[in-house]
Amino acid sequence: MTLLLQLLVNGIVTASLYSLLAVGFGLVYRSMRFFHIAFGAVYILASYAVILMRDTFGFPLSVSIIIGLTIGVVGGVLMDRLVYLPLEKRSAGSGVLLVASLGIYILFVNLIALIFGNEVKILSAGIAPSYTFGPLIISRMQTVQCLMGWLLVTVFWFIIRRNTFMKGVWAMGEKQRLVRVLGLPYEFMRVVVFALSSLFAGAASLLVALDVGIDPHVGMQALLTGAVAVIVGGVDLFWGWIAGAFLLAVLQSLAVWQFSARWNDLVTFGILIITLLFRPQGLFAPIRRREE
């Protein structure tokens, strides 16, 4: 029972990280309607930027984190301005964008591996202190992950509920032309989408990297986790993304309990396949009229 409770707590902590990934990926996927593979590149970019700032330029960690997140955001926005937007202006389909995105991802992974090496880089050395609540143990880093993750997601949720601009961003995914002819600033909205998406990717990446370190190949894992959470929960529902992330995290930690951590991917993609077979619109999405 204690073990189950502990795994549930771990699940909630992991869910906070997965939610960040889901929101980051989902923002682009929902409002641009294309699969932003380079999200994985932004993910590693932010952490490696922090490592570069701290180890090479000798900034303190806090300053490095701010610079690293900024570099991630700028990188994400530039990907759109330099690659996606020009392609879209020449009316490229989503298949072309997908391949372009994959190209950016591979380029970044290899560049970073070339500069920093393939091995795991550690951001914080030593064993982190932990707190015990009765039988439950939670490390300090886990507490930070959990608090930061849920805080960011909650703040963002309040913003999209109240803000007309963000409603416009939401509308952009289904009715791109309409958003343009209503006089909304389409290109600026794209900038905001990519900036926010990259911010969420960077935050998730740093929260993980500060705990267990980072290597150049974790981006794909992060991307797929976010994507599965969004698709499982339902692309059209913001809280569905979060619920998807939560479901994924809890089921994964149950899999760790019953089998071993090696079967995590099986759980992730098992859920994805089952969802796509039986409820392709997502587990939590309502059924819509066909006219929509």
Binding site: T164, K167, E174, K175, R177, L178, V181, G183, E292
Partner: peptide, 24 residues
């Protein structure tokens, strides 16, 4: 300009649609 089709956002409420029209 009124689009021929796809001229509202079905996922948002009527109020939100109207506010979107008045964005600028």
């Amino acid at each position: 300009y009124l689009l021929q089709s796809e001229n509202i956002v079905p996922g948002l409420s009527v109020r939100e649609n109207i506010l979107l029209g008045g964005y600028s």
